[in-house]
Simulated scan of single mutants.
Amino acid sequence: MSAQGLEVIDHTVQLTHEWINELKDRLDWTSARDALRMLRTTLHAIRDHLDTGESAHLAAQLPLLIRGMYYEGWMPKSTPIHSRKAKDFIATIEASVGDVLDYRGPEDIEAVFRVINNKISRGEVMDIRSNLPHDIRALWPEP
């Protein structure tokens, strides 16, 4: 039992650390803070390319804390964005994480996709991928 009696919070903190640690290991980065920023930024880029229904389905499978970050700053009226090119998707992410010393480019974005593949259901990953523009979907390995 949690010291505060708030097991749901303790559990989501634990799950969030698991996601961040797995990503940090896959990236081989030194900073968990930078790995979290990479995760949040990539999730936002994915979210902004999905319609509201598919975005909500993805969010439902995220740990509570990550789900909050996922929805942070979201403007559903503005989504899905119309850019269909992978280079624009990558540029959006790089605008937020390009200053991270360990950042290597699209291979680090792929690491986020691999964490998602590992952490949520295969069916949901396939749904998300099928709702992304082909050029962006090509960046995301199949689960």
Rank of each mutant, 00 (worst) to 15 (best):
I109V: 05
E124C: 06
I120G: 05
N131T: 05
R104E: 07
V115Q: 13
S130M: 07
M126W: 09
Y103Q: 03
I120Q: 04
V100E: 11
E110L: 06
V125P: 07
L101D: 10
V100M: 15
D127M: 13
P106G: 02
I128A: 00
E107T: 11
S121L: 14
L101W: 09
G105I: 07
N118K: 09
E107H: 14
M126I: 08
R104L: 02
L101V: 09
R129I: 01
D102V: 05
L101E: 12
D108K: 07
I128L: 01
K119Q: 13
E110R: 11
V112T: 04
I109Q: 01
V125K: 11
N117I: 04
L101C: 06
Y103C: 05
I109G: 00
L101K: 12
D108C: 10
G105N: 06
E110N: 10
G123L: 15
V112Q: 04
N117V: 03
D108F: 03
I109C: 00
V125G: 04
E124G: 00
Y103P: 02
N131A: 10
E107D: 14
A111M: 02
R122E: 13
L101Y: 08
G123S: 15
P106N: 02
R114F: 11
S121D: 14
P106D: 04
R114H: 09
M126S: 08
F113D: 09
G123T: 13
R104Q: 11
I120P: 02
I120S: 01
Y103F: 08
P106Q: 02
I116A: 06
S121I: 08
N131S: 13
R104C: 08
F113K: 07
K119F: 04
D102K: 06
R104H: 07
D102P: 05
K119Y: 03
D127N: 12
N131F: 04
N117Y: 05
N131K: 07
V115T: 08
G123C: 12
V100C: 13
V100F: 15
G123P: 09
N118T: 12
L101S: 07
G123F: 15
F113W: 08
R114K: 15
A111Y: 00
D127Q: 13
R104D: 08
V115R: 09
R104Y: 05
V100N: 10
Y103I: 04
R122V: 09
A111W: 00
N117L: 05
I109W: 04
E110C: 12
E110W: 02
I128G: 00
G105S: 10
D108I: 03
E110S: 13
N117C: 06
R122L: 07
S130H: 13
I109R: 01
D127H: 15
V115I: 12
Y103K: 04
R114L: 15
M126Y: 09
I128W: 01
M126P: 03
E107V: 12
K119E: 11
D127K: 14
I120H: 04
I120K: 02
N118F: 06
I109H: 03
E110D: 09
D127G: 05
P106K: 03
G123N: 15
G123E: 15
G123Y: 15
R129E: 00
